[in-house]
């Protein structure tokens, strides 16, 4: 249920603008990897390259190779929807479907996969909501609109929606940036539990969060505005936050820059 991701010379563009350049990194299965760095350094772009959401934007494209257990997700013959089913994504702002109930939100991905049987959907919804630590809060109002939950609950609903389709990898793009500290804590605890089953990659601006939840940390940075983002250092989280080998990383995590 978890797979290894290998990025080799990944370069991504928005039209003519090169957003990231030659990113090389390997993410091990069943770990949490944090991507940190200053704004505009390409963390989110790299994250969106992994499940091919980058190319959704007009003019955006990716070069290089990105494999998941050896299989190139950018291979010409690969079905992009299959890639996205295998690599789930949680966004910065909670984005439940506003016209759907809590239940419908959770099973939206299953319905897209053609699952119609009510009992299957009900079981999957309960399982996903339990895994997202949301079941006890919503089990009595599954028919109520998903948009009526609090921000933190909505984000956990989105996580439930993502893991309901049982992906191999879960990408999280600043999942707590719109949430209060208590909801943030709930989601961080959730990440600990999810890592037993999934490979998790999280983009965060919160360095305490990175040091709390991740096993490995990748530091991205840019030379100056307009330059492409590069991977500066990638190591065990412990090492990055106590004894980084690159001066720039140290400056960033100690708050001297960025």
């Amino acid at each position: 249920m978890a797979k290894r991701i290998e990025a080799t010379n990944v370069t991504a563009y928005y039209g003519a603008f090169k957003a990231i350049e030659n990113i090389n990194m390997t993410v091990e299965p069943k770990t949490v990897t944090a991507l940190i760095g200053p704004s505009g350094c390409g963390k989110s772009t790299f994250l969106r390259s992994i499940n091919r959401m980058h190319e959704v934007l007009p003019g955006a494209r990716v070069e290089g190779s990105l494999t998941i257990d050896g299989q190139d997700v950018y291979d010409r013959d690969v079905d992009v929807t299959a890639v996205r089913r295998m690599i789930g994504m949680v966004f910065q702002r909670p984005n439940p479907f506003p016209t759907m109930s809590i239940f419908e939100n959770v099973v939206a991905g299953l319905r897209l996969n053609g699952v119609k049987k009510k009992s299957v959907l009900t079981d999957a919804a309960e399982k996903a909501l339990r895994a997202a630590n949301l079941w006890d809060e919503v089990k009595d109002r599954l028919g109520k609109p998903g948009a009526g939950l609090s921000g933190g609950q909505q984000q956990r609903l989105c996580i439930a929606r993502t893991i309901a389709v049982e992906p191999q990898v879960v990408l999280m793009d600043e999942p707590c940036s719109a949430l209060d500290p208590i909801s943030t804590l709930a989601i961080e605890e959730l990440m600990f539990q999810l890592k037993d089953q999934y490979t998790i990659i999280i983009v965060t601006h919160n360095m305490q969060q990175a040091s709390r939840v991740s096993d490995r940390t990748a530091f991205f940075s840019i030379e100056k505005t307009g330059d492409p983002g590069r991977l500066i250092e990638y190591d065990n989280t412990q090492k990055i936050f106590t004894n980084p080998s690159v001066k720039k990383t140290e400056d960033y995590i100690t708050g001297r820059f960025g």
């Binding site: 996205r84 789930g88 479907f97 939206a108 991905g109 996969n113 989105c158 993502t162």
Partner: peptide
């Protein structure tokens, strides 16, 4: 919302 749907495959 559009991206949420796309990201679900």
């Amino acid at each position: 919302n559009e991206e949420a749907a796309l990201a679900l495959g």
